[in-house]
Design a protein around this nucleic acid. Structure first.
Lengths: 138, 138
DNA sequence: AGATTATGCTTGACTAATCAACAGTTGCAA
DNA sequence: TTGCAACTGTTGATTAGTCAAGCATAATCT
């Protein structure tokens, strides 16, 4: 319970920040992933692998992001099944405007912990997560 | 990120267990809360306070649980605005059939941590959560 | 080569969560 | 006591996530 409620509190705090620019936290995460994949872009499913959502959800989220002009789809030569998704200039600008605020909110969320406590927390959480690696298949 | 992904992994593990009885994790949590409130039952919004969800979600979740015969609504004398929700016999039986499996899944989810590490993790998480108490209003 | 299987993504139908607005009830104050 | 505000739920509309099935393309097998 402590795990779920604290995760939700932090989520709510960060969500409030990204909501000021009209996107959701999940969409923000996708944009961040795509920024990290510049300038090549990433196939749709490769984005999904780094996220919590299932495949069809990714397709529709990309739909919404594309409708907002934040990303672009592109069929490449080579494997024509793949759809490469690239973040647009507008998308990059949106992220740039959000970076500092997110950083502040993130820092604020864990402000009660010292640096040492924060690393300890991260370490324990990663061990819990990684223990599920094999079973859950992700 | 470690917080979110580990929370989701644990959620998925527990969710898989309750899904075997046709309910969601949130519904399971509501039933647990109501079992804890026996034999009085609880007003609808009081359930919401102990959960992550917002108010309208609670109403509809109670709708679904009522449709399955797992809970019952009852207007009490006294404050006629309140709707008391009580878990039914069927609901209690469903929980009873789930208890051990949930317990096992829960234990399994954190099996990589020693008891001391688990208490440390809980303590850190609670501090993160409680730090948001004032701002988020819950 | 041709048939079969696997991959990558998309769509449709369904379920669920959220926001805004509402109705009934209560409390409080002029 | 009456009128206004607050509280407790509920509903409608919108948006989003999930499963199952489908289409196109690619890889594999004989």
């Amino acid at each position: 319970m402590a795990l779920w409620t604290s995760a939700d509190r932090v989520r709510a705090a960060i969500d409030a920040v990204v909501a000021t620019r009209g996107i959701t936290l999940q969409q923000y995460n996708v944009l961040r992933i795509l920024r990290g994949a510049e300038p090549d872009g990433l196939p749709t499913l490769a984005i999904g692998e780094r996220m919590i959502e299932r495949t069809p959800g990714i397709t529709r989220m990309i739909d919404r992001l594309e409708a907002k002009g934040l990303v672009a789809r592109e069929r490449r030569s080579g494997d024509r099944r793949c759809v490469h998704v690239k973040i647009s200039r507008t998308g990059l600008e949106l992220l740039a405007g959000l970076d500092r605020k997110i950083d502040a909110a993130d820092r604020g969320a864990f402000a009660t912990l010292s640096d040492a406590e924060l690393s300890r927390l991260t370490e324990l959480l990663e061990r819990v997560r990684d223990a599920h690696e094999s079973e859950s298949g992700r």
